[in-house]
Simulated scan of single mutants.
Amino acid sequence: MQEKLRIAVQKSGRLSEDSLKLLKECGIGVPNGNNQLKINAENFDAEILFLRDDDIPEYVQDGVADIGFVGENVVLEKNKTADIVERLGYGKCRLSIALPKTRKKRTVKDLDGMKIATSYPFILNKWLKQNRLKADIHVISGSVEIAPRIGLADAICDLVSSGSTLFSNELYEFETILKSEAVLISGKKLSPKRRALLEKLLFRIRSVKKAKYNKYVMLNAPNKSIGKICSYLPGINSPTIVPLAKKDWSSVHSVISESDFWNVIENLKAAGAEGILIIPIEKMID
């Protein structure tokens, strides 16, 4: 029987949608499984396992799945034996300690001796020890934010993205103890065949990620300005310069980083560039 890479994906939720989208961008089809827990992928030697996010680290550790798409916060909380092989850049959030608006604190030392409700006792306890603090941790599986209002805890430690849930429960974010995003984890005992499939998948994922963080730029410029313009456009190796039918003018093609986008565009305009065209990149392979 041909070996396939067993990929664990959260069976529902935003992280599941983004992970399946990434697989699609990597050329891997995931058919609509009609709520099946395991389906074969298309165009790649893989099968997709749809699991609860909390279970994915253990399934990868035990070898039931070879790799898994999961939140970094889940990986650290479950403390299983698995390697983070790629940070994926989506599903970003933070694990923070929040306090009632009526309870103003100045430093983390003010948390000493408090009762803190959380769904992440392992991460919280580790952070408390690192900061030489002691607290009474109350483990709650859901609706953590209500704990201070019902007198169960003085504070909470929970995931925060927009902060709207904290606001609606009259809480404020006091201290961030972990920044998290979606990651790809791998078991430690993959067969050579499955290890090769993982490397193939990582190559595709990195190409997709790199494309998202860069833009393709085309512009026209007088030849006398080409030198200065090229100094702003390093590209992958160097800009491509193509002579135009218009005398003493050329077209310049290159790639610019998303983070430098506006500064670069402003510099190009100032250097004499015209007709600047910016194009998204679907894949980018070195």
Rank of each mutant, 00 (worst) to 15 (best):
S180G: 09
K115L: 15
K269W: 07
L171S: 04
Y90S: 11
T118I: 07
L95K: 01
D62T: 08
D112E: 13
I56R: 01
Y216C: 12
S12T: 05
K134P: 01
D83W: 03
P100S: 15
L171H: 02
C157M: 07
F69P: 05
P100G: 06
N220A: 14
E266V: 07
Y59G: 08
E86V: 06
K11D: 09
E47V: 10
D158T: 12
R106N: 15
K209Y: 07
D110S: 11
A155I: 05
N32L: 15
S207C: 13
P239C: 11
N220H: 05
V70K: 04
M114V: 13
I156C: 07
Y59V: 05
I281F: 07
I265F: 12
Q36E: 11
S119W: 02
M1W: 03
E145F: 08
S16G: 11
C93N: 11
I278H: 03
G89E: 02
Y59A: 10
M1Y: 07
K269D: 01
A98W: 04
T81V: 08
L233S: 02
L5Q: 03
R94L: 10
L15M: 12
L201D: 01
Y90F: 15
A8N: 02
S254L: 05
S119K: 06
K101A: 11
K92C: 14
L20M: 04
K210A: 12
Y90L: 13
K247W: 08
K228T: 11
G27M: 05
I116T: 06
L190W: 02
S207F: 03
L219H: 00
D45S: 10
A221E: 06
I265P: 00
N79E: 13
L171G: 02
A196D: 09
G68A: 14
G63E: 01
L152E: 04
R132Q: 15
D112I: 05
L23S: 02
I39P: 00
E266A: 09
L178C: 01
G235R: 02
L184V: 11
N79M: 15
A273S: 12
D286Q: 03
F44P: 00
Y59N: 05
Y59D: 08
S143L: 12
N214M: 10
L76G: 03
D260S: 14
V139E: 13
L197F: 09
L124H: 02
I97S: 00
V217D: 00
L22Y: 02
H253D: 13
V242K: 05
L197G: 00
P31K: 04
K78H: 13
